[in-house]
Design a binder for these strands. Structure first.
Lengths: 351, 351
DNA sequence: AGGTACCGTGGGAGCGCTCCCATCGGTGAT
DNA sequence: ATCACCGATGGGAGCGCTCCCACGGTACCT
């Protein structure tokens, strides 16, 4: 018995019980104070707070998690290898927003990479163990099984870009349609008429929406859509080069290019330059993401900016409310849980 | 009572007890199987494993943490703002090594930024709550109170660069002295005689060691050390420029520069170019870190490579053994807990 | 045959907390 | 004065696990 007690008292951390004794109150009362319950008199609260301070009491997370069946942690799951995470500013901006918003809470943020199969298996195990109260999912492909696993395990989750128009998970996204649209409208306003579009990977819903925006902007302005002016890319620089080459071959007279990402725009720029087309006088160029690449390109690239940091913040908000709503069995299926944030066209010299 | 039971059975996760019943054994036996104890007969083990599989049993982490007084998690603490973390490849390489090594274990890695005061206070609270079994500390300045806090809380920790020659915490470092030495030796072998050194921030122990290496290489080769050839930098590009300007003013005849980081070398290169000195014919240039900058510089920069990924791996190894050693009160103070890994000079055209 | 180990095993006690119910005194209504 | 009620409070029970002690059985010794 004595040895038993000694085992866990290592470190001598005070317990709730000890704080209660010190403050001359019961265990329940201390718990109420710690958790900010209003059902405590001011005098008692003060006494307890004093005891907490004197003893340097810090709640034992494990005990709390066990008793209350929650972990006070949420995971940001990145289904990509670490490498891409560091390479793309998208993630760091997102993390910034998420980190800022979560730091107002008691929640702990875990960053989990699930790029390899092995990592994904680990993640599945991890989620099955319910080690987090909720999950933030970024950069998910249409055929990813993760979202299903999550809903099967009944773990609250928010996704950063919906997988389709019928996304069932709560999501936060930027207005890809509007972004594509504004790029094209800007080009039209600048007098361009043969506007090409290098798309992103079309299994990414957002990339599709940008194409939709491109199409509708043209149609609404009374122009036709020439399918020869649309070429799929894959979000890489090399993909941008290839697409640009094809477009130039098909429509040598094109006078503007709207690329689905800055990186692809960079590839397109190289080809245009090699072909002797000057930017923007011969061909106007617009990218997407407003990344560092855009600012440093020669000439500086006009680009569609997404409020990524803001997206991160909103994702946390959504997730926290999702988690909070799990307690009462209130039906709330009709509530709007798809957030769409406006984009902004950043004008530079390339257009 | 019933309502009580229902509360926590949400999700219907099977418990140890249920697995035990299913396998027709006692709770203790299941626990032994789960934890890989050898004191279980093969037949029993098989039965338990079958029951675990059938029920889809996953241990409850919180319960385990509470009972065993451990968390199975370790934190990688970065005492810098997120921004720097993403900007410097040092961190991503380190994370890669750490992630690779830890994925062989059951441990969970947490990434914690502690750049701002607010974040640091949160971290202190976090550590006080003993929410991790151990801590990895990277990029710690000499006057950082974090290491003391850690040892006061008796939390195992490993530091990535010792703060001084008398570092008490277990540490993993690259051989900064040898790195500086090899750079200078290479320059001497190339016939250079007036070799300047732009140092890193001298409150960083590793930067001091590089200077020591620089000095000793010169002395051991029978040369004198001209203090006018040593100028402190601050690891930034701008600092590199400033230092280079000063050095050129003091010793216009210098024919080689060893910079304490690639970034500073980039700054130095700009000044050299502006002054009409060509690299490497007029002035040889060597950097430190072998980062992407070095590869992409014009001309490509000779640089000292540190095995950062390997350092990450070794840090985990050290930390895990630290944690394991906490159990028995065996005295082991004399053991070697300072690991130093060799650097490598990567030859390119700048020297 | 009796004794001594030791192995594999079952299950009690306890980790520190939350949740909930019972209790207590005080208040306003009757 | 009596009663119903309410807010504040104490503490039992339970969360799911690990640790450890005790127990029965077998193997080996004397």
């Amino acid at each position: 018995m004595a040895s038993h007690g000694a085992r866990s008292r290592s470190g001598g951390r005070p317990t709730l019980e000890e704080v209660a004794a010190r403050a001359g109150v019961g265990r329940g009362t201390v718990s109420r104070v710690i958790n900010g319950s209003p059902r405590v008199s001011d005098a008692t609260r003060a006494a307890v707070e004093a005891a907490v301070a004197e003893l340097g009491y810090v709640p034992n997370t494990a005990a709390r998690a066990l008793a209350a069946n929650r972990t006070d942690a949420i995971a940001l799951v990145v289904p990509e290898p670490e490498t891409r995470f560091f390479a793309e500013p998208y993630f760091s901006d997102m993390l910034k927003g998420v980190g800022a918003e979560i730091s107002d809470t008691e929640m702990q943020l875990l960053l989990i990479f699930a790029g390899s199969d092995r990592e994904r298996r680990r993640l599945a195990q991890y989620l099955a163990a319910h080690r987090v109260d909720g999950v933030l999912l970024v950069s998910v492909h249409a055929d990813d099984p993760l979202p299903d696993l999550l809903s099967q395990l009944e773990i609250p989750a928010v996704i950063s870009g919906p997988r389709s128009a019928g996304e069932t998970l709560p999501s936060v996204d930027s207005d890809n349609y509007g972004g594509g649209r504004s790029a094209v409208e800007h080009l039209l306003a600048g007098g361009r008429r043969a506007i090409a579009h290098i798309t992103g990977r079309l299994d990414v819903y957002g990339a599709q929406r940008r194409v939709d925006g491109y199409r509708d902007a043209l149609l609404d302005a009374g122009h036709e859509v020439d399918e020869r002016l649309i070429e799929p890319g894959d979000f890489t620089e090399e993909g941008g080069r290839r697409a640009m080459t094809k477009l130039l071959a098909r429509r040598p007279d094109l006078d503007a290019v709207f690329a689905g990402s800055d990186v692809m725009a960079a590839g397109a720029r190289q080809v245009l330059r090699e072909e002797g087309r000057s930017i923007p006088s011969d061909v106007a160029l617009i990218g997407y993401d407003d990344s560092a690449i855009a600012r440093h390109m020669d000439p500086p690239l006009t680009s569609v900016r997404q409020p990524i940091e803001e997206m991160g913040r909103r994702m946390i908000d959504l997730l926290l409310s999702e988690i909070a709503d799990r307690r009462p069995a209130v039906s709330r299926g009709l509530e709007r849980r798809q957030v769409v944030l406006a984009t902004e066209l950043v004008h530079r010299t390339s257009s």
